[in-house]
Structures are given as structure tokens and as C-alpha cells.
């Protein structure tokens, strides 16, 4: 799994490549909290286009991001969810809590 950050206007986009599982979910959590808490970025967008699979530890990292965004008043937006990622969020009853967009352009403007 690889995660990299890029800045677009006032937003940070985190591009993730590879599955998010127990071996690397702390890295996702760390990146999200760095942008949301440490840098106080007003909009953090997580690009999951190249993520086929997310396990429960990955979901937990996304929940940490969601909670941090709520605490700081930032926006935390997901886009590019695979069917598998969408299913795991749905089973966890979390899908409706996240802002989910179809593509990057919408994730930056919604």
C-alpha cells in the first residue's frame, strides 16, 4: 500500500494505492490525522480509486478520520470506492455517515 498527498487549492487529496488492511491501516490513520488535526486542512479528500479491498482495521482508520474532521470542522470526503469497499462500509452501517463522491472533481466541490 502506498499513500501520497497533493494539494489542490485549499484541499489535500490523499491518493491511496493497494489494499488497506491491518498491516498498513495505521499509516492511513496517521496521514489523515496529520492533515486534519496537525495541519488543520479545511477539506481532506481520500482517493480510493486504486483500492480494491478495505478490512475492518482500514474502516477503523476512516472512522478516525471522520471523527477528527467533525472535531476540527473540516470536510472529509471519499471518492472512487470499489464495490468491496462500499459493501464493507454498508455492513458496518457507516456508508451514510461518510461524504462519498463519484470522482475527484465532485469531491473537491461538493
Amino acid at each position: 500500500m502506498n499513500i501520497s498527498a497533493r494539494r489542490v487549492d485549499k484541499a489535500t487529496i490523499l491518493d491511496v494505492t493497494g489494499n488497506i488492511d491491518m498491516s498498513n491501516s495505521p499509516e492511513v490513520r496517521k496521514s489523515l490525522l496529520r492533515e486534519l488535526r496537525d495541519k488543520s486542512v479545511s477539506r481532506v479528500v481520500l482517493n480510493l480509486t486504486r483500492v480494491a479491498y478495505i478490512d475492518s482495521s482500514g474502516v477503523a482508520s476512516l472512522v478516525e478520520g471522520l471523527k477528527a474532521a467533525r472535531e476540527t470542522g473540516s470536510r472529509f470526503v471519499l471518492f472512487g470506492l470499489s464495490e468491496s469497499a462500499r459493501e464493507v462500509l454498508k455492513i458496518s452501517r457507516l456508508l451514510k455517515l461518510f461524504e462519498v463522491c463519484d470522482d475527484e472533481e465532485k469531491a473537491l466541490t461538493c
Binding site: D55, S56, V59, A60, S61, V63, E64, L66, K67, V88, I91, S92, L94, L97
Partner: peptide, 10 residues
Amino acid sequence: IRPGGLGLHI
């Protein structure tokens, strides 16, 4: 809404 403890649900 909190992280963790989701494995069994899944």
C-alpha cells in the same frame, strides 16, 4: 460511531 470492534459485525 467509533473505530474498532467491527470485525465480528463484518
